[in-house]
Design a protein around this nucleic acid. Sequence first.
RNA 1: GGAGAGAUGUCCGAGCUGGUUGAAGGAGCUGGUCUUGAAAACCAGUGAUACCGCAAGGUACCGAGGGUUCGAAUCCCUCUCUCUCCGCCA
Length: 424
Amino acid sequence: MLDIKFIRNNIELVEEALKKRNAKGNLDEFLKLDKSRRELIAKSEQLKQTRNEVSQEIGRLKRDKKDITHLTKEMKELGQEIKRYDRELKEVEEKLNDILLSIPNIPNEDVPVGQSDEDNKEIRRWGEVKEFDFEAKAHWDLGEELGILDPKTAAKVTGARFTFLKGLGARLERALVNFMLDLHTTEHGYTEVFPPYMVHRRSMVGTGQLPKFEEDAFKIEGTDYYMIPTAEVPVTNMYREEIIDGDILPIKHVAYSACFRAEAGSAGRDTRGLIRQHQFNKVELVKFTRPEESYEELEKLTNNAEEVLKRLGLPYRVVVLCTGDLGFSSAKTYDIEVWMPSYNRYVEISSCSNFEDFQARRADIKYRPKKGEKAVYVHTLNGSGVAVGRTVAAIMENYQMADGSIEIPKALIPYMGGVERITK
RNA sequence: GGAGAGAUGUCCGAGCUGGUUGAAGGAGCUGGUCUUGAAAACCAGUGAUACCGCAAGGUACCGAGGGUUCGAAUCCCUCUCUCUCCGCCA
């Protein structure tokens, strides 16, 4: 959410930002409602002042046993009038809030302007893309042959876009979760949290998933609960409506969680394999920082996520998303893309974003720069560190051997109980 | 699931027979006196909130949302959360 005063005073700038994002915002309506809101507040508060004064006067008169009936009658009418203004105000504020919640964040100035993911800019590459001297297979074929991926049974039990991991496949998934958590907690200084997998609506609004992207979320029928699409939601909302002690910033959390996404609008895309599932595991990095430190922290966070792929020996590149591809809440995002032989291209495995104060304002998360000073919004950041299912796919494909077996990356062997290779 | 108790400012904690209560008292914090320094003691200050307004100032806020009333932290209704006991359960 943007600051209402900021929009009012920088309407051209906001318009420009929306245009760069290919987004539309009802700014004319915003200005109208904003004006009407302030007028109604002035009116209502003026009447309330009168009411407060007269009510005190009535108290005094009553104590002196004087007649007050003419005043109470008058005040009763005044009360009705106030009620009318307040009702109207509430309506206007609701409409205004709807608009406010639907305006995306303003891209940082160094974000490249562009229409789509084709305009994203590559920042750097790491690792060598392996040339296979045999016909490389996709991970879904390898997985079925090795008996470690079983989407068919999952389809029987649940439906499309779910998978049973079996044997060393399940072990690999678990090994990766532990490997990533250990790396980020012991070497990168993140504090581990294990969050609830369901959150209420207010939390989803706090991080920006709602109200705009209702169709992407799984909602639990008959409740106010949503399955989390990422640990970002519960972990960021841990500090909702709080004023954080400035001494403990930056706060760095790492959280493993399953993630649930409806994937509306991607029917027919990535239907095979682990790339696009309704449920997947992710290790998420979340930071709360002082505003002046957030971009430095974004670089560090991205590096922390990259380290996972380096240790696993998976070739990747980092791209900065252009304005047209940027997520709703983000001011700047780096995607880390891992080399996926079956796609013959790099595929997103992590998305690291600085939301600046956009989420903090929605979720009301502040800190106090100095004792006695006014509290200000923190900056929030997060990024996958990294998506586990896609890492499994990447390992299977990049580490496959001519005989259809899969080598385990060195760093992972201790987590695999010494297993060095997955064979038939 | 059943029966109770509760939610007040940075914190603890009064008020809850409706009217100088934005809210006693204490702690904390800030400044001062005293002291070689510190502690203690004492004195003074202290909404670490949001909104409207150029300002003066005003309005709101005692878990949340409604209602009664000229006037609600105080009365009524609904909801949420916390705690205790019983039952059930991983």
